[in-house]
Amino acid sequence: MVGKLKDRVLKDALKCSFCGFCEVSCPTNFVIKRNYTPRGRIGTVIFALKNGITTIESVAGIFSCLGCGACVEYCPAEIDIPEVVRNFRYILRTEDTEISDEVR
């Protein structure tokens, strides 16, 4: 079940060209660190699902997404970024990835 979801989430995330058009619309962009931006979150998903890398800081970026969808309008690849993030959060929880209390 989660395996199939992972494939779907990764497939969506891989559409990202890392152009950054989404960033300025994101309410958490003020943090500046790239993991707190939509393209950073998509990058985080790719590094996790393709390369098996997650870090505490990257996971914090994933859980900082407000799900407001402001980024979606500006994504040239038409990725539903909040949907990818929501599904990835589910994967992290299901797989019992280390998530600190601060970001839960």
């Binding site: 060209s17 890392f18 152009c19 950054g20 660190k33 790239r34 993991n35 950073g40 990058g43 985080t44 590094f47 890398i53 997650t54 870090t55 505490i56 800081e57 990257s58």
Partner: peptide
């Protein structure tokens, strides 16, 4: 300052 591997990776990727 960050030495987080993934944050470094995100800053080491371009369009």
């Amino acid at each position: 300052v960050s030495t987080d591997d993934l944050l470094i990776a995100l800053h080491s990727k371009d369009a």
